[in-house]
């Protein structure tokens, strides 16, 4: 258990160090996120009433598509550089690798989402400075990273991974998407616990279940 934790931390620290040095993945996800957020400017008439209705949807469509770009790279880089074999050679349990990569992806997504949030204010006058929104977004991002880490390991070895990853990710993360959009709408309406609270509970329950199942299933994906 302790050895596994140490190995997971080693994988996480390694990923953070590489990203801090190259900023390759963060640069790509951020650029994509801004473009994704920006395109909605022309997708509909940006009147305040429309915005109140579609605002949460815009935020989460941008976040989800950006997340798919990020998770695509999670294991792709390890596979392309042959370093996945280096991870698999170690006596560390597969779950340790899963959690190391999971926290790496989670950190990347949280940073991207936080940096993107002001863009919604500038582009749509949508202020996301809201405790309940932050809670819903953080919880949903945990779930996205939990499912995404597993699917990334599958897609990294597959052909046509650009098509496969969204096809698998969207239906499997649908509960998160519904919960995050509804929770965000409630939070931005100022509904707090009575509105956003139950969505938050649903998302947290999803997180717990999917972290357990995904970390268990990861061993079956990793083996060759």
């Amino acid at each position: 258990m302790r050895a596994g934790l140490r190995a997971a931390l080693a994988v996480y620290a390694k990923d953070v160090r590489i990203e801090a040095r190259t900023r390759e993945t963060l640069g790509a996800t951020l650029a994509f996120a801004f473009v994704a957020a920006f395109i909605f400017t022309f997708a509909f008439d940006p009147s305040p009433r429309t915005l109140a209705a579609v605002g949460p949807g815009i935020v989460w469509v941008a976040y989800i598509f950006t997340a798919m770009l990020g998770m695509n790279r999670t294991f792709l880089l390890e596979v392309e550089r042959g370093t996945l074999d280096g991870l698999r050679l170690a006596p560390a349990p597969p779950e340790a690798i899963y959690f190391g990569k999971f926290f790496g992806l989670l950190t990347l997504l949280i940073v991207t989402e936080a940096l993107l949030a002001p863009a919604f204010l500038v582009l749509y006058g949508l202020s996301l400075l809201n405790v309940w929104f932050a809670a819903v977004a953080a919880a949903a991002t945990v779930g996205v990273a939990a499912v995404g880490t597993l699917l990334s390991a599958i897609a990294a070895h597959a052909r046509a991974r650009e098509a496969l990853l969204p096809l698998l990710f969207i239906p499997l993360s649908l509960p998160l998407l519904i919960g995050a959009v509804s929770g965000t709408a409630a939070a931005l309406d100022g509904e707090g616990w009575s509105g956003a609270g139950r969505w938050l509970q649903l998302i947290l329950a999803f997180d717990a279940a999917l972290i357990v199942v995904s970390s268990w299933a990861f061993a079956f994906v990793l083996e060759e």
Binding site: L150, L168, L172, L174, P175, I178, L202, A209, L210, V213
Partner: peptide
């Protein structure tokens, strides 16, 4: 994928 899908069913139904 099928097992993960099964795990998401109760949450999806509720959501």
């Amino acid at each position: 994928v099928a097992v993960i899908g099964a795990a998401t069913v109760p949450f999806l139904y509720m959501a």
